[in-house]
Design a protein around this nucleic acid. Structure first.
Lengths: 200, 200, 200, 200
DNA sequence: GATGAATGAGACTTCATTCAT
DNA sequence: AATGAATGAAGTCTCATTCAT
């Protein structure tokens, strides 16, 4: 009885439009009107599905985390060993090519920027970052142990994540970074760092 | 003969107020009125000294570059050798403590964000990044040569700069990074990377 | 033969929800969506049972008049004599306690306010006021005659009704009126006014 | 130096436009746009002089109190004796004619209505009502004493004020009250109440 | 140089109402 | 009868910018 709900699909449609608009025109350009237009919907409808604009960003943040997770799982399925799993994670978060969404990088940077002003968003953003840090630490730890390298896995994870975030930033706002080279470069550096003295 | 011009001082006053406002409330909060209030001036006066808001950001970008340059020169004066100069550069851009301005970090992130929308700003932002990249490459090159390490100095500079930018981002929007540990951590990593096989 | 109509019950349900919402959040808060939520119905259904929002107010006006009438009848049944009937009427419209609905007072004030904007509502509101005035005049007249007081019953009715409306207003928007004292106070004043010279 | 401020005059202009709009179209019609149009100003300018719409109502409330006070003082100057002062107060708040502003009545009613939703406004509204109550009590007290009438001046003041408020309400929303007769009627009633037994 | 009034566009949001199901 | 999606107009407010003084 009654009209069937299409809320889930519509919300995804709105979030995806936000992703595209943000990648194209930054956060300033991502007005509710602009998002509505990109999604082919009326501005009023966006408020039927989200309480306010901030909620759309929250949903986008979840969406981005989901995209990264999905990509990681797809890539991890093909790799074996501690090194393989670590590289799969890095490729999932940094590499271009199959399954990558360039818009996601820009959107992620904008959300990070907006997180300062929006307290609730900041809390969620920080949680995602923390989660990534934990994942990375867990992946680095066995590698370090196997190589008998005396390095703090957590500290290395922070630096690695910073590098990834920095690549995002530079790739979004400048042309000094070749997107395709980021992942190989980081993999090389990590291998060198971790394995550098393995034969000592 | 009229009153003496105080334009230079006023411009600096405005730029510095922008720096503080941006660090506190992000780009969204940095309205012309808010900047004027922070500077203790009227909003109209800001447009007397700058054509438009974007010009204030341009000036702030220059100001930030100047701050970093000044800090670098101060630190470099005390260091000797290729390693010393490289570490001085890193400390100038990343370390806390003497001469560091925490607000500059946040403002830099916001300017990077705004650069996407504002084409002219993006060009200048990119130029600054390029300049830093060149400086860093020039500092890394002799070190790599001395250690007889076969690494592309430019590629290493990109990764290093990305790490620095990423630290900025993480420090501004989250609490997962301890600001004090960023510079030592990066120095350690670099030494390991560059010097790792120096004894081979 | 189709399902039996529940229109009457639904309309009452909607009107009663409006009464509660209005008492709680004023006319501003009484959006169609808010009323629907309070009633546990969908907003669309409200327009199935009422042509538009104004019609709900019309129905609420009728409902409020019905409530007062019912209360009056209940109270009048226990009283005898001209004085008794007059006091029953006053208690029905002003007294707290048994059968009184505090929400009705606030809702009545809001409807009076809205009546200015909504022409059709104003006509009905005015009709209700006129009816009350007539009732009050008819009740005052025999009392005045019996006391051989030379007062215009209609003029006295207007003032009395104004006092009642004023009590509503003050009780709704301020705390300067003790709701429980309004009816006794008005009764006392009336007795004094009407009976003041009865022994002349 | 700099442009001279016309803020006081502009604020008054805005408040007065609000008074007129409210009297004509009620609170619903008193949108910021409508007020701006009535005042012949842009909507943006209203927010230059008032933080938000609610502040305009606050100022209007003050303005209305000022109007009543001014009228009272003008009328009181011509009257002598306890009775004279009491009647001057009543005429100031209720009578039509010289110095009376019919719009003020309607605006006062709307502000009372809006006070329920707006907590800060309610506090001020209540303060004004309380002040009037105190004034009225102070005026009634000597009259009651002189007549050796055993009546509680405060209770009588509440009822009198309620009657006045009720007249406002009825005059604003209905046509059952002849505005010109309100003040004489109330004076007559008061004289009867207070003086009824003076010759006992 | 400096102030503060003034504007107009555009931001987010709410809401009564309509319509497909 | 009932739901919930959908719309479009209108609401309040912010803001970069211009202009009179």
């Amino acid at each position: 009885m009654g009209r069937p709900s299409n809320a889930v699909q519509r919300r995804l449609q709105i979030v995806d439009a936000t992703l595209r608009v943000m990648a194209r025109t930054g956060f300033d350009g991502a007005s509710v009107q602009a998002i509505a237009k990109e999604a082919g919907l009326s501005a009023g409808l966006l408020h039927h599905h989200f309480d306010n604009k901030s909620q759309i960003l929250h949903a986008l943040l979840d969406h981005l985390e989901g995209l990264a997770r999905a990509r990681h799982e797809a890539l991890a399925a093909r790799r074996r060993g501690d090194w393989g799993r670590l590289e799969a994670w890095i490729d999932a978060h940094l590499a271009v090519g199959e399954g990558a969404r360039p818009e996601a990088t820009a959107a992620w940077v904008w959300i990070g920027a907006q997180a300062l002003k929006d307290e609730a968003l900041r809390a969620r953003y920080q949680a995602v970052v923390q989660r990534r840090l934990d994942e990375l630490t867990a992946l680095l730890d066995p590698v370090l142990r196997a190589q008998e390298v005396r390095l703090d896995a957590h500290a290395l994870a922070v630096t690695t994540l910073a590098t990834i975030e920095g690549y995002y930033q530079l790739a979004t706002s400048t042309a000094v970074v070749d997107p395709g080279s980021a992942a190989p470069q980081l993999r090389r550096w990590l291998r060198r760092t971790v394995g550098g003295q393995r034969r000592r």
